[in-house]
Structure formats: C-alpha cells, structure tokens
C-alpha cells in the first residue's frame, strides 16, 4: 500500500490545475473499471457497471487536488509573488522547497525583517533563483501553480508521514476498493474530484451530473491524540472513522448504519467522528441536484495541511474494506 500511495502523492495537482494527478490515477484505475473520463470541471470519473436490472447509483468521492500557490506577480528583481490556493498554514510552509507544475523549483520565504507573528499571505514570495523579471518569466508565468515539495516516508510500524496525504490517501482508498471489491452490485462511480480545497467545487458538479442514490466521501479527518489538542474522540491507529457530522454536513443515518454494519461484519475496527470545524466533499454530495443519502469515511490524521501529515495505513486498510463492502452490497 505504501508504494501505491507514493505513486499518488508525487504528481502535482493544485486546485484548478489537476491534470497531472488525474492522468496518473486514470492509468492506475482503468484496468478495474469499465470507463474512465474527465468532466467539464476536470473531475476524473471511473465507472463500473452494476449487476442486475436497474441497479442503484453509488458514488465515491475523494479529492485529488491539493493546497498550493498560484503566481500572481513577478517583481522586477525576479522574485515571484504567489496567491494562496486553499487553506495554507504559513507557519508550516515557510522556508520550504516548492515545485511548479513544469518542474521549476524554488523556495517559499517571507519578506525580510517581518516578525513571525506579523506574517501575512502577501508577505511571502518564491525565490526561483532568477536574476531578474525576464529571467523569471522564462520559467514561470502569471497563473502557474506550485506546491510544497511532495514527500512520503515510513514512521514506526504502519504509520507514515508526508504530503499531500490530504487527500491522496482518499484517492488510494477508492483505488484499492475498486481493486478489492469481489463484485459490483450497484452502478459504481469512483470520482476523483477537483477544487475541494477551495470550496468543494468539483464534488458539487460531478454529483449533479451523476445524481447518485448513495454517496460516500473519503478524506482525512483529525486525530485527538496529540499533545495540547482540543478534546476529540478519534485517535490514530484505533481504526477508520465513520463520519457523523462535520462543520458542513450531518451524515445520513442510513449511510452511517450501512457502514457500521459492514465494519462489524468484516471485523474492521472503526470510530465515530464528529469534526467541529471544516468540511469535506460530503456536504456537496448530499445537496447536489435532488440530494442523496450521503456519508463519509475519514482517515484519522495528525498535522493536516502541513508537509508532514501523519496517518496509519492500518486505518486506511479498514476504510478500504468498508468501501469495498459497499460495492458488494446490493443497495435498494
């Protein structure tokens, strides 16, 4: 699973500019489904026909975009001002290596003589080593995207650290579920959504087009087991979390029950997640077009939106079993 995750972590896919990661996932998942295509927004949809007459539509969503930066201005001196894309933690991103889609490398740094507590997004620039504006423009243009360099490495046991685990870990879960499912009882759509980090935009439009009966998002969650954190009843390594609620959605009881039953049947350890803030694709899935029965699985994650997001691959494996179980369940 680690090697597969590495394949999904490395390609760039800053929100609105996901073509690289889309290509990689499309190639990987194609052997396990009937059809793979991109829609108008760029969402990657892998479709597997269900058995029998008039099967229900089941949609899985994991976002393939990641937080990053977009070039907004190139100074005469060749330094590059960037606009944030998604919820950047500037403390985490300061003084790190960034890589552009075309491979250009740079470092993200704050203006000199600015105190840490005074950091504002507009105080940051990327130094690609250019001598002047003209030199910089040979490699970078307005609108180009970049992100903090990807990385993935093993920690103790089945725990791993790196970025962007948010939400390539969800993409991995969808991929592994498509691979592991013994049968497909429903028309199943594995959707790798775009622009989640800027406001669940891709999930909204893909769910509108698909109009699923049931939908499940797979994303990272939080972990309540680190020093000084707010009380939160989900701990890393205690199993995959089934979402009850987050800042933007209350999951459907039927979906919660369905997933709990599968987990119990397959002896998958699970936890129930109530996330105080933040949101996932789940809210968009639930409300698109006429609405649907929606829920989510969350991978307990430490240090989200940093370059060292930490998850336990055992939790992930449990999540895969639940998603595969849904594929194998005849939904009515």
């Amino acid at each position: 699973m680690f090697a597969q995750l590495k394949k999904f972590v490395m390609p760039i896919g800053v929100s609105g500019d996901e073509s690289e990661i889309s290509k990689v996932i499309a190639e990987e998942i194609a052997p396990y489904v009937d059809k793979v295509y991109n829609d108008a927004m760029g969402n990657l949809i892998a479709f597997k026909k269900g058995k029998g007459k008039k099967p229900k539509k089941l949609m899985f969503a994991a976002h393939m975009d990641e937080i990053g930066f977009m070039v907004s201005y190139i100074e005469d001196s060749g330094f590059i001002r960037v606009s944030r894309v998604g919820g950047i933690n500037y403390t985490a991103a300061s003084f790190s290596e960034v890589i552009f889609k075309n491979g250009t490398k740079g470092v993200l740094v704050p203006d000199a003589r600015i105190l840490t507590k005074e950091y504002r997004p507009e105080n940051y620039y990327v130094d690609i080593g250019a001598r002047n504006k003209k030199d910089a423009e040979r490699r970078v243009n307005i609108g180009d995207t970049c992100r903090v360099a990807p990385t993935l490495f093993r920690l103790s046991g089945s725990r791993v650290a790196g970025r962007p685990i948010d939400d390539r870990i969800g993409c991995l879960m969808l991929f592994e579920a498509a691979k592991a499912a013994q049968s497909f009882e429903n028309d199943t759509y594995f959707v790798f959504t775009v622009q989640e980090e800027v406001g669940v935009r891709g999930a909204k439009t893909s769910a509108y087009s698909i109009q699923p009966d049931y939908a499940v998002a797979a994303d990272i969650g939080g972990s309540g087991d680190v020093p000084m954190c707010a009380p939160f009843a989900v701990n890393m390594s205690d199993g995959i979390a089934i979402k009850l609620k987050d800042g933007m959605v209350i999951c459907h009881q039927k979906m919660i029950e369905l997933m709990k039953n599968i987990a119990e049947e397959k002896k998958v350890p699970y936890q129930l997640e109530i996330l105080e803030g933040g949101g996932t694709d789940t809210c968009a899935l639930q409300q698109a077009a006429g609405g649907c029965i929606a829920g989510a699985v969350s991978v307990p994650t430490r240090y989200g939106h940093s370059a060292v997001e930490v998850v336990d691959l055992n939790d992930v494996a449990g999540g895969v079993k639940i998603l595969a179980g849904l594929c194998e369940t005849k939904l009515v």
């Binding site: 829609d39 108008a40 935009r201 439009t205």
Partner: peptide, 24 residues
C-alpha cells in the same frame, strides 16, 4: 494585463462555473 493579486474578490464566475455539471 494580468491582475497583480489573485486574491481579488470574485464575481459571477463563482456561480457560473459550478453550475449544473460544471462550466469552463
């Protein structure tokens, strides 16, 4: 010309591009 700061408040595109199945 390109605007020099992409954090400008957005316009009607925000509603249009997410409409229906999505609009480039």
């Amino acid at each position: 010309q390109n605007p020099t700061f992409a954090d400008l408040p957005g316009g009607e595109g925000g509603a249009i591009h997410q409409n229906g199945g999505g609009v480039p």
